[in-house]
Design a protein around this nucleic acid. Sequence first.
DNA 1: CAAAGGGGCTTACGCCGTAAGTAGAGCACT
DNA 2: AGTGCTCTACTTACGGCGTAAGCCCCTTTG
Lengths: 221, 221
Amino acid sequence: MTRRTTPQPNRETLTRQRVLQAAVELANAGGLGALSMRKLGEAVGVEAMSLYNHVANKEDLLDGMVDLVFGEVALPAPGDDWRQAMRQRAISMRLVLSRHRWAIGLMESRSTPGPATLRHHDAVLGCLRRGGFSLTLTAHAVSVLDSYIYGFALQEKALPFDSPQETAELAESITSGFGDGEYPYLTEIATAHVMRPGYAYGDEFEFGLDLVLDGLQKAAG
Amino acid sequence: MTRRTTPQPNRETLTRQRVLQAAVELANAGGLGALSMRKLGEAVGVEAMSLYNHVANKEDLLDGMVDLVFGEVALPAPGDDWRQAMRQRAISMRLVLSRHRWAIGLMESRSTPGPATLRHHDAVLGCLRRGGFSLTLTAHAVSVLDSYIYGFALQEKALPFDSPQETAELAESITSGFGDGEYPYLTEIATAHVMRPGYAYGDEFEFGLDLVLDGLQKAAG
DNA sequence: CAAAGGGGCTTACGCCGTAAGTAGAGCACT
DNA sequence: AGTGCTCTACTTACGGCGTAAGCCCCTTTG
């Protein structure tokens, strides 16, 4: 046994990828508030300061996390009909954003997009251009589609409940707090619509999505 | 001079309103990051801990700020045509959200709405119901409209520039960073569309808004 | 086998939100 | 007038944050 030690067999070398993935897992589990450099270091078995060998600073870490999330979104297949492709893209994006609820709040202010983000946007633009959209209409379409998707994800995130049952409980607690006449229409929709069995806000997504796609199809002529 | 001191004539008593307004001003000036209890105390001429006489904690402070912002949005007038009223409401909301860019990032996770927020939502629901919308269609309409408005505001906030000139500069710096073939459609839209004189992303808002309103009108039959 | 470089660790600084305790002024009683 | 309650503001302190600066030792290379 002249060999000193094996090259740390029990601790595989840290990489940017491993750091980013651990950060995403931390954020998934406890929200962005649970993600600190110290806790992230602990999660990957390293002191906080050692993380700075792999990320420039926390901004850079967040940028990398956002790009990782974008990488999970299914790219529109080049051969597909634009409408079909955009529909699938939107649904995939919403799925990804609901898997990583912290991400939507992070896309504000992240102004240095990573490669997966750029690839995603390029694929979306290409799908529309090849589908016959003019430059101007392509810009309109991307704006309205992304606004709708992000905005829906934002609202969905703001809801502090997941199951229909929790929804009903919250709606009841809100309406019972006021006199009947104070917010009549809120009371009406809470009692007669939201509290119906089987209600789930997420089901609203496809209604708006198809509404937007219809409008774009008409505009494309 | 038997009287000890006058009852502090030069310092008007602090109120929740004054605290909230100062907090909004701080956030307007320097973003949410510039808003700390210490700085807010300094702004109103008081130590940080004294603020807790008027707000329960920072969460409560943020809740109050959001409600203050909602109070700035013009309520739909009861007599108006639903489409006209919803259009004006959307434009007013976007204007308010661009005056307070920090607010959109805050509406995530604020789950205890204040009176102005409730009044706003009740007025919107009422406008649609009186316009003949069924309960289900009203829920659809609110979802798609709010998603679009918030999502647009979110994207607008993410843009790190305000003037058309800054936009062009950024677009050029992005496209020049890659080989021509890497992101062809991004390059195309950046050079041939975004960099045109007079381009401003904000102009996209009304296209999507009218698209959504058209779709709702059709759905309302 | 020595030199060099790099990944990891320790320490420290100035922020943050806020719990806990204190002081003084205004008011309502006797 | 005295007594005590309440309300506002201040002070101090704690644990956590991002990260700058410096050191240490292991690995690679000549």
